[in-house]
């Protein structure tokens, strides 16, 4: 564990009330995240990764359990959505300024801050490009810049590399490492890309089953490539065995 506690999820579970009945999306899950670390949540599609991330982001209320945030001020959590969720009618600078506008930051300051964050993610000179004019990797960097604009202590990313090629995915990984480098911020990533998660994260939480629950945690911090590869194989084995068990249970 690196720094101070930034997030604690204590037995959070989620049920959705649908017209066809209640669907349990997430079984009680608990974990903590600390400043300066990258936590990856991996699992199959439908295991509840995005639900868990949205609960941590404060976008969903858990049906039960508690969410503890060390810094609960507005703008202390930044979220990067799957598929970027950029506003297509706003250029890159306008997108990054959006959370600053919502926070009531005066125009001069928000322009300066947005330019600074865009330069930090490597998009200086592309401030006035619309999302439709940018590549997938660039859009993801704008989305990250937007999430970082209010200088959050907790950055949450939903499938940040799902639509990116290897080079751009590696670039996003380097950015995430830079985000936590000063030891003040925590990054939590939900991904189905186990290779990327094991290569990047300090801790990997394995979410399995329906409803999903955290079945295993791998601490990968300070590990070499060989140990990370071994962890990767162990995670794949866990997910496959859980999937097989679920299939057998369903057919029984």
């Amino acid at each position: 564990m690196k720094g101070h506690l930034t997030l604690r999820l204590d037995g959070v579970a989620k049920q959705y009330a649908l017209p066809s009945g209640t669907v349990e999306a997430l079984a009680p899950c608990s974990f903590e995240a600390y400043a300066g670390e990258i936590v990856a949540i991996v699992g199959e599609s439908g295991a509840g990764k995005s639900t868990l991330l949205r609960i941590a982001a404060g976008l969903l209320e858990p049906t039960s359990g508690r969410v503890g945030i060390m810094n609960a001020l507005p703008g202390s959590r930044g979220m990067v959505f799957q598929g970027y969720a950029l506003f297509p009618w706003r250029h890159a600078l306008g997108n990054v300024m959006f959370p600053l506008e919502a926070a009531g930051v005066i125009k001069g300051e928000r322009v300066a801050r947005a330019r600074e964050v865009l330069a930090w993610v490597g998009l200086a000179g592309r401030e006035y490009a619309y999302p439709g004019e940018l590549s997938g990797g660039m859009c993801q960097r704008v989305a990250i810049a937007r999430a970082l604009a209010t200088d959050p202590t907790l950055l949450l990313l939903d499938e940040p590399t799902a639509a990116l090629d290897v080079r751009n995915a590696a670039e996003i990984g380097r950015l995430m490492r830079a985000v936590v480098a000063d030891g003040d911020r925590t990054v939590i990533i939900a991904t189905h890309d186990i290779d990327r998660a094991v290569a990047l994260a300090d801790r990997v939480l394995v979410l399995c089953g329906r409803p999903g629950s955290i079945v295993s945690t791998f601490v990968t911090e300070n590990m070499g490539p060989a140990e990370r590869l071994a962890d990767r194989q162990a995670i794949v084995a866990i997910i496959e065995s859980q999937s097989r068990a679920a299939t057998i249970a369903r057919s029984a």
Binding site: A57, G58, L59, P74, G75, R77, M79, F81, G83, A85, F87, F98, P99, E101, A102, A103, R146, T150
Partner: peptide, 17 residues
Amino acid sequence: DPRLVEAARSMNASDVK
């Protein structure tokens, strides 16, 4: 797009905004 509304909400945007 509901994702855009959710993204705006995640940035603490008011209903008017």
